[in-house]
Design a protein around this nucleic acid. Structure first.
Lengths: 361, 361
DNA sequence: TCAAGGGTTTAATTCGTATTAATAAGCAAT
DNA sequence: ATTGCTTATTAATACGAATTAAACCCTTGA
């Protein structure tokens, strides 16, 4: 088991090889390459010889050994509880990865994707596997289904990590999005456009992101004095519900955007089947608009009105926060909520006059 | 720097703690927890005591130490030479990552993205930085601009690695796509549709992928006895060229798909400006069609005809090959070209009759 | 000449686990 | 009682680098 080396293969050079080659001790090699502590000096000639030998042999420090000796290795972990690179292009999380990668690269940090470990952990139902993240200097966590216990242990051990997305657990650092304010703001915009009767469509999911949006919607509705109702759906058979809403004088619908997009897809299908136009017949707002070109709404194909989740910024911010935690020089709070940019879009208009008839029977 | 431990929490338990608690040696603990080699037996009572103590203390093995002792670390590297890591889904290489991650996860391997190192290497123009990939058990390389020297060193050292994309250098294992056959096949399809006069538009790039496509086009044209000409472009000002072609009786154009997409974009713009329809006025074929929905062609918006680069399969295949190299049990060749799937699309039609006038003056 | 001092280098130890060679203990047979 | 043979356990060491205390120069100054 020990020998996984391909045949006919020189061993990776280590510090002792350099030492022998340069005629010094391993300790000296470490001091030269790692940098001597203040007050200790190396002879320039020695330094040169060591560096030359290291170059000659193609030495690269073993991050595992480095890590075991309690230093850092310029590697950040990324532990996701789903695929890191989503196969489905419709998957909405990848801008986070873009942000993480951008910032990590800018900071000279490499990235370890614990996809193999995560998969193994899930398959074997082995909560201890999360510990593997300790090979990195610190780790980003991301995803909905997170085993609480192993993460609690990481906190306890003082291992630096950051969640992407808000978390409730005490002492867990995170970088999230301020869904509450953003959602309230969307409702306020509907109110400003003249809407009085609004419905909020969400999924059955218990995720914090969903809870926050609902909180925001309710807060915005209360502040504006709107008639609002929260409805949960799995996205199927929304035709009757839509009809009912229209008959009751509802003029605007707010939908949450999730990773599955079930609620949105279901509503969109129902709107198309009913032959409704947006925002002519019905105003639509999306809490968390998908980025780029994929945001064409049903009933006319306009860009969704709503807000933009700053996913890329979250990724970047999480990396920055993590690096501060690793360095230990954290002054401010280790929990941050980033503001969501309002998206004007084209699906919010004035409310449809109650007398006008809808698309078709 | 040394202390990454949060203040005031106890050190996490290690094997020696269990040993003390159970009244055995550390070696025994390791043997119990890890499993003794065949031929060596543990007393059931001892085993019980050790397991109980480990449970009691909440022991979890330190993966860092485990790997330091075990020599292989179940980590595969991924090093790209492009300016930015293709985490953006819009990037044409993204499916490769999907494939790599899929297969790595399935094999229980974690993935190290050397984005930070690559960036640093590029910035400092330090070819030695590539050596950092040795922290992984093996590495995948990917990208057009590859510093030859450090890679040659890796070959020399016997470090297991695999290129994604064909390489000329001797002894470099790769998983690529058979652009030659696929391109020849596309030309054959044009010939079968009745086209006699065809132009091939490519970029100035010297990349092997471009060379292969041109070779394939030329081979296909020769086999079918077509009148063919290769034209290089940077994608700008193709209007005059397009006009010239039409006047000369050209009825089909083949374009290469690259990471920049410059040639294709330029031709598309020229076609749109000329008000041409595809395939009514001109047949189009794309060598390496973008996957999914992004492939709508100019002059009508049909899906491109051409072939599909099996990027996902390349990613998966590269991981599999790399693991075989690492394990050392390689029987077959370490160079593989995967076939490209032909894509029917809607931009190849019968040639336009020579008498009919084109879109506009 | 010896001691003191400063600049350089190294021996020794640490990190936590895996593994092997060696030891100890138990028991049967001689 | 001694040898021989299992079975159970441990001492010792490797893994590769970081770190500290100690040793080694080589000058100066007395």
């Amino acid at each position: 088991m020990a020998d996984a080396r391909a045949p006919g293969n020189r061993r990776r050079p280590r510090q002792s090889d350099i030492a022998r080659s340069a005629g010094v001790s391993q300790a000296t090699v470490s001091l030269v390459l790692r940098g001597a502590p203040t007050g200790m000096s190396l002879a320039p000639a020695t330094r040169q010889r060591v560096i030359a030998a290291a170059e000659e042999l193609g030495y690269v420090p073993d991050p595992v050994a480095t890590r075991l000796a309690a230093a850092t290795n310029a590697m950040l972990g990324l532990y996701t509880f789903s695929a890191t690179f989503p196969t489905d292009v419709a998957h909405s999380y990848y801008p986070i990865l873009v942000g993480v990668e951008e910032e990590a690269a800018a900071q000279g940090q490499d990235l370890i994707l614990f996809t193999g470990s995560a998969r193994a952990a899930a398959r074997a139902d082995d909560p201890a596997a999360v510990r593997r993240v300790r090979v990195a200097d610190g780790c980003l966590f991301f995803g909905r289904h997170v085993p609480a216990e192993p993460v609690r242990r990481l906190v306890e051990d003082g291992f630096p990590f950051v969640y992407i997305g808000r978390r409730d657990e005490a002492g867990v650092p995170y970088v999230g999005a301020d869904y509450v304010s953003a959602s309230a703001d969307v409702v306020a915009r509907l109110a400003a456009a003249g809407h009085r009767k609004v419905r909020y469509l969400r999924e059955h999911d218990q995720a914090l992101a969903s809870v926050d949006r609902e909180d925001g919607v309710l807060r915005g509705a209360r502040d504006a004095g709107l008639d609002t109702l929260v409805v949960r759906t799995d996205g199927s058979d929304l035709d009757a519900l839509l009809r009912e809403w229209l008959d009751a004088g509802v003029t605007a619908v707010v939908v949450e955007q999730t990773d599955t997009g079930a609620a949105l897809a279901g509503l969109g299908a129902a709107i198309d089947r009913a032959g409704l136009r947006c925002p002519g017949d019905l105003s639509l707002a999306l809490l968390g608009a998908p980025t780029g070109t994929r945001g064409s709404a049903p009933g006319g194909g306009a860009a969704f009105s709503g807000f933009d989740v700053p996913m890329r910024a979250m990724g970047r911010g999480a990396v920055r926060l993590l690096l501060r935690l690793i360095a230990g020089d954290l002054e401010g709070p280790s929990r941050r909520l980033l503001p969501c940019e309002p998206v004007e879009g084209g699906t919010i208009g004035p409310p449809r006059p109650p007398n006008r008839t809808t698309g078709r029977a």
